[in-house]
Design a protein around this nucleic acid. Structure first.
Lengths: 319, 319
DNA sequence: TTGTAGGCGTTATCAC
DNA sequence: GTGATAACGCCTACAA
């Protein structure tokens, strides 16, 4: 592997001149420049990026932490991040955690070891304090409502959105409302749980623990959800499903059991994915791609900011 | 940021000794070792990985090229790769290409620039020769049948599998068989196309160009497919769908149009995903995760190998 | 406009 | 056991 010292020798110039040519710096005569260019041609020279990184103290690498990359919610966030990464000449290092703390720690470690410049955490397992401990090594962006902390955040108001969904269903006459989420822990889930319990209190409804169904991620989980609610002594008449894939799975499972939607079961999905349009599912549209883009930008600009994105309610046929 | 030179000063030893302690090398007295350890404690020192990379000439980073990471086929390959990466202490750099050559070239460039040690390409857009040109910079693994080339490959026999699917449908009485694929180009698609045209010739059936439907990737594409075949003058009676998500989408679209499966339309899916089981779709199971694992291993072991994986036919209710 | 020399942080060699 | 010292490949004052 040839290096700039070799090139310098070949071109009869100094390494500095070679470096200048390589990095398009000014103050190089055409003549020497061409000599260097020729040497590069002849030698199939290629920059050793690690040396550049070491010398510059930067890598142009950004870490992205997410639990599942095949899940549309995260895939869309990732898409937005990747879009901006491309424009800013950054590469991404992906950490698919399956919500294992150890994987998340690996990402934080890479930040600590300067292998990545910054980190976007789309959904975390670690405690905030663990994450804050790593802020000294580089910018970290979270995708949850965490105002006041010294790290940047991008989020939507899950509390308000859930209240809206619940009130909408209440107005439509529903009194037994359940909901499906990915996991019970996490800031977003807690906001939803809060909205739910406040709603139940407000209207003096029964707080039924089993109406909260977690581990709902993919289409096929819809079948499981339906079986579960049908097994309840008091089957809910409506479900808020925080993911259109699962909502579609429930709708499909209902069809094969001849359960009429929305008559026997009303459903509100989330994300407004193509599958929701196809299956005529009422859904909340989240601007996930833009949120991803925003997170990237927050991560490159060290400045700490907090940005809330708004959601849009799309009425269709499942309520 | 403290470095090992600082540590050496603090501990009253040489940088060599510090390095030995850090890397658990032998020949260092307990006493000095503890002094170094204490210095590390006191200084919140962290290894600069880039310096290690430069010094060692290795990064323990592997690149993974795939068109869509939210597509179950690729997500499963990735899962397998990630599993082995974890075990081998490798990190992954993801290149989601959307089949854009430029993105693939970025990955090849990173290999050239020693920013990654090796590269797994799950599906390529670039010409093989372009990829071969980069073999000098590190191992590259492809996921297609490419025996005889000097790069490692992991693949399944798409030709044989497709023949099996076609023969099975023929035996069931089908004479108008169409198929759905992701894209028309690519080694795998060409193998399938070959199987199809040979089949058509063998049984003297009509080769109908419009029976080959591409751009079939996600559940919601199923609706599009159904509309399309219903618009044909000679609607196929059976479809081979190279992806269970799309197959499920077709089944769902059929339900809402009261098209009976398999009576009016038979369907064979691919991948045997959970959704296929849920919707009782006949499918071919591909060992995608194992294939991913294998690709990782091929990429770390520089030795060139070719490995074929076999598929399993899962009979269910859609044929 | 050009070049010398020192530095980035770590590892490896070799002598003691 | 231990420690100088020379790589690794590049960047950048600073001097000329």
């Amino acid at each position: 592997m040839t290096n700039i010292r070799d090139l310098a020798k070949m071109a009869g110039v100094s390494v500095t001149t070679v470096s200048r040519v390589i990095n398009n710096h000014p103050y190089v005569s055409e003549e020497k420049k061409n000599a260097v260019l020729k040497a590069i041609q002849d030698s199939n020279y290629h920059k050793n990026i690690n040396a550049v990184h070491l010398s510059r103290g930067k890598t142009l690498l950004m870490g992205v932490v997410l639990p599942y990359s095949d899940h549309p919610y995260f895939a869309l966030l990732l898409k937005g991040i990747a879009k901006q990464a491309l424009e800013h000449n950054y590469k991404l290092v992906l950490f698919q955690t399956d919500y294992m703390k150890s994987r998340e720690l690996e990402a934080l470690d890479m930040l600590k070891h300067k292998q990545i410049d910054s980190l976007v955490i789309c959904s975390r397992s670690c405690h905030v304090s663990t994450i804050e401990d790593h802020l000294q090594y580089g910018p970290i962006v979270l995708c949850e409502n965490m105002k006041g902390k010294e790290l940047s955040t991008t989020f939507i108001n899950h509390y308000k959105t859930f209240v809206n969904a619940l009130e909408y269903l209440y107005q439509k006459g529903h009194r037994n409302i359940g909901y499906c989420i990915g996991r019970k822990t996490g800031t977003n889930s807690r906001q939803r749980e809060l909205a739910y319990s406040n709603f139940v209190n407000k209207y003096q409804l029964e707080y039924n623990q089993e109406y909260i169904i977690d581990q709902c991620l993919y289409f096929e989980d819809g079948e499981k959800v339906l079986k579960r609610i049908l097994g309840m002594t008091n089957t809910p008449s409506a479900l808020i499903v925080t993911n259109d894939q699962v909502a579609a799975g429930i709708v499909t499972a209902c069809q094969s059991l001849d359960i009429s939607i929305p008559k026997q079961l009303a459903i509100i999905g989330f994300d407004n994915q193509p599958i929701a349009r196809m299956m005529n599912i009422t859904s909340f549209e989240l601007p996930l791609e833009e949120m991803g883009e925003n997170m990237f930008l927050q991560a490159v600009n060290a400045e700490v900011t907090h940005k809330e994105f708004s959601v849009q309610f799309i009425e269709r046929g499942t309520v």
